[in-house]
Design a protein around this nucleic acid. Structure first.
Lengths: 365, 365
DNA sequence: TCTAACTTCTTAAACGATTTACTAAATCGA
DNA sequence: TCGATTTAGTAAATCGTTTAAGAAGTTAGA
C-alpha cells in the first residue's frame, strides 16, 4: 500500500493537473495554452500541447468548464408528450428544424428533455442548460412550475399568453373557424371531429364538448373552439349532427381508429375535420380502405399543412401554420434573453391560412 | 463601498450556501435534505425545505452536481450534416425515435450537437455528455478523431466496422444489389442514378463512378456499389447506359432537380434508382409534373422505406431498413457501455429487404 | 456504569476547470 | 543606470455541489 501513489487512479482520464505536472508548469499555464495563446510564449505553449497530446488530454472537461464559466452553451427543449411521439410528428419536426437552424448559427447545442405526462419532471429540473423552450405544455402541468422555478430564460410555445411569460403561438382559433366555415359553405351538415388529447388522461373514444371546458391542451382546444364557433353560427346541432372522437396522440394510426369507430357506431359524417394533418391523413387512408371516396363520399380536412398533406392522394385541405418559423421565433426570443437584451416577457402570434386542396368537396349525400 | 456586502451579488440565483446560512445549518445538511431524507431528522428537513422555498432555491445547480457526480445523464448525438437537414430526413427521424425511446425509459436526455462539415467540431469537443452516438459520419472527417480523443463510450452508426469501435449498420450493399436486380429483371437497360453527396464538397451535378472510389459517405457509397455490382453482372455499360446525378442533400427538392437535369441533358432513363426514398419521391413528383407516367414511362425506386414511401402515388418500390431498430440498438450498445457491462467494441448489422410496390414496372419503351 | 451502536449534523476534501491578482524577469527610454 | 512598462508565468480563489470521515449527543444492552 503506497499511501501516495494510490491517489492516482490509473483509469481516470487525464486532467489539466496531470498535464501541468508532466509539463512542469502550473495549471493556469495549461489552461492558457489552450484558451489564450497570446498569454504565453510560443515555446512553452508548444511543449504544453505536445505533452497534452502525449498523455491523451484532449481538452478541458466540459462540465468543469461550464461550472466555472457559468454557462453551458445549451438550450433545453421539452416536448409535452413522450419524446418518441414528438419526434414522430411532422409539425414538431419542422418546429425543431426552425430551432436547430437558429441555434446552429451560434454553435449552441439542443438538449431534448424526456418528459412523459405521467412521469416526473426530474430531468427538466436537473438539465444543464442556459435556457428552455417548452413546446405545447398542458396548461396545468407541474412542468410549467418547474421551469419557472429554475428562473432560466424560457419561451413557452403554444401556451396561452395571458400568463406572465414569453410565448410564441398561432392563431389557431380563427384558422379553425375558417376551415369549418369552408366545409359549411360546401353544404356539409353532419360532422365528425377527430381530436387529440383533451385532458390529462389518455382516453380514446367518443368525447363531448364538456371535456374541453378547462384543463385542455391549448392549441387543440383552441382549434376545437374555432370549429364549434363556426358550427354554432351555422345553427348546426352540436349534439346530434356532430360527434367528437378523442385520440391519445396525433398520428395516422389514431386517425384510422377514429374513422373505424365512426363507422362502427353507424355515424356517417359527410365531413371529417381533424385537429391535425396526421390524424386527417390517417382518416383518409382508413376511409379509402373502407371503400369510400374522398371527397366524393366524405370530405376530410386537417390542420398544420405538413409536407405530407400536399403529397397524399387526394391532397389535403388544411390550415397552414408555419411551424418552422414558429421555431425560429422561439429561438430568437430565447437568444435575445440569453444575450441579456430583453428582460420583459414578449408574445408573438403567427397567422394561419386556409389551404383548400382536393380532399374537400360539395356535399353529395 | 461595503467590503463585505458587495460580495453578495443581488442578481445571482440562490445557492446551497445561501440556503444553509438562512436555515442555520451546514451545506451538507441542505444537500441531504434534498437528496437523502433519511440522513436527517424530519424536523430539520422540513425547515430546510421551507427556507429553500422561501428564498427561491429550487434545487441543486445541475452543472455543479454533474461535476461532483462525474456524470451528466446525457447522451450526445452528432449528425453528419447540418442538424437542420438531419431533422428533415425521415430515416434519421426514425433513428432518433429509436434512441429517444431507449433513453426515455432511463431518464437520460439527448443532446443534439450541431456540426456542419465545413464548420469546426468545437461543439462536439465541449459537449457535456456521458456518451456519444455518431450518425453517418463521413469516413475521413476530423469529427471521428475528436470523438475518439474524448475517450467516451461511443457508437458509430453506418460506419465501416473495420475500424476499432462499436458500430451499428445495415446491409446496404446487398439490399441495393437486390433492388437493381429487380429492375434489371423487369427489362430495364438505361438507368439514372440519383445519389447524395459522395465526397466532402457540396457539388451538384452529373458525377461518375470514380468519385466513389474513396473518401465517400459510407452508406450511400455502399448502396452505389451494390447498384454497380448488379449492373455489371447484367453486362450493362456503366458509362453509356448509366448516369449518376449527385445531390447536395437527401431531400425531395434535390430529387426533383436531378430529374430536371436528366431531362435537360436529354438522357431518358427507363429506370431511376435513388440512393434514398426522399430523393426518389422528389423524382416521382418531378416526373409526374413533366408529364411522365410512373411506372408506365419510367420506373422509380428508392432506399429506406420511410413512411412516406407507401403513401405516395404510386407507392414506392424500395429497400426496407428498420431505422428505428437501428436507433434502439445504438442506444442499447451505448447504455451497456455506460453501465460498464461491456468493454470491447461490438458490431451489429441489420438486414434489408426489397419491397416491391407500384413505382416499378416492366420496361415499355 | 460502561461500552457499543445509532442518530444527527458538521467539517472539509474533492470534482476539474478559469481567472484575478501578483511576482519575477526582461525590455525600454532617456 | 534608473524607473517604468511589458512579458511570462504562478498561486490561490472561485464556480456550486456531494460525500467520506468524524464529532457530539442519545439510546441500548449487559
Amino acid at each position: 500500500m503506497q499511501p501516495e501513489s494510490d491517489k492516482i487512479s490509473p483509469q481516470r482520464n487525464p486532467t489539466i493537473k496531470t498535464v501541468a505536472a508532466a509539463a512542469g508548469v502550473s495549471t493556469a499555464t495549461v489552461s492558457n495554452a489552450f484558451n489564450r495563446p497570446n498569454q504565453l510564449s510560443a515555446e512553452v505553449r508548444e511543449r504544453v500541447l505536445s505533452v497534452a497530446r502525449e498523455i491523451g488530454y484532449s481538452g478541458a472537461n466540459p462540465v468543469a468548464r461550464n461550472l466555472r464559466r457559468m454557462s453551458t452553451n445549451t438550450v433545453g427543449f421539452v416536448y409535452s408528450e413522450s419524446l418518441e411521439f414528438g419526434l414522430n410528428d411532422p409539425a414538431s419536426q419542422q418546429f425543431l428544424q426552425g430551432i436547430a437552424r437558429a441555434l446552429e448559427s451560434r454553435g449552441l447545442a439542443l438538449l431534448l428533455l424526456p418528459f412523459s405526462a405521467t412521469g416526473n419532471s426530474e430531468t427538466v429540473r436537473n438539465a444543464a442548460v442556459d435556457g428552455i423552450i417548452l413546446y405545447c405544455p398542458p396548461m396545468n402541468t407541474p412542468l410549467v412550475q418547474v421551469v419557472k422555478d429554475r428562473r432560466l430564460p424560457a419561451v413557452f410555445v403554444d401556451y396561452p399568453n395571458r400568463s406572465n411569460c414569453t410565448t410564441v403561438g398561432v392563431r389557431d382559433r380563427s384558422g379553425a373557424r375558417a376551415l369549418a366555415k369552408h366545409l359549411i359553405q360546401l353544404g356539409h351538415k353532419r360532422f365528425g371531429i377527430i381530436s387529440s388529447r383533451l385532458t390529462e388522461d389518455f382516453r380514446e373514444g367518443f368525447s363531448d364538448w364538456d371535456r374541453l371546458q378547462h384543463d385542455f391542451y391549448y392549441p387543440e382546444g383552441e382549434r376545437l373552439i374555432g370549429y364549434r364557433q363556426a358550427l354554432e353560427e351555422a345553427n348546426i346541432d352540436l349534439n346530434r349532427q356532430v360527434r367528437i372522437f378523442e385520440c391519445k396522440h396525433s398520428a395516422t394510426a389514431f386517425g384510422k381508429r377514429a374513422i373505424a369507430a365512426f363507422l362502427a357506431a353507424e355515424f356517417k359524417p359527410t365531413a371529417v375535420i381533424a385537429v391535425s394533418d396526421m390524424l386527417a391523413i390517417g382518416a383518409i387512408e382508413q376511409l379509402k380502405a373502407a371503400g369510400f371516396n374522398v371527397p366524393g363520399d366524405v370530405s376530410v380536412a386537417g390542420f398544420d399543412d405538413v409536407p405530407e398533406a400536399s403529397r397524399i392522394e387526394p391532397p389535403l385541405t388544411t390550415v397552414r401554420q408555419d411551424s418552422e418559423e414558429k421555431g425560429r421565433r422561439a429561438a430568437k426570443f430565447l437568444l435575445e434573453m440569453l444575450d441579456g437584451q430583453v428582460e420583459e416577457s414578449r408574445h408573438s402570434v403567427l397567422q394561419t391560412e386556409l389551404i383548400v386542396r382536393k380532399s374537400t368537396g360539395a356535399r353529395r349525400t
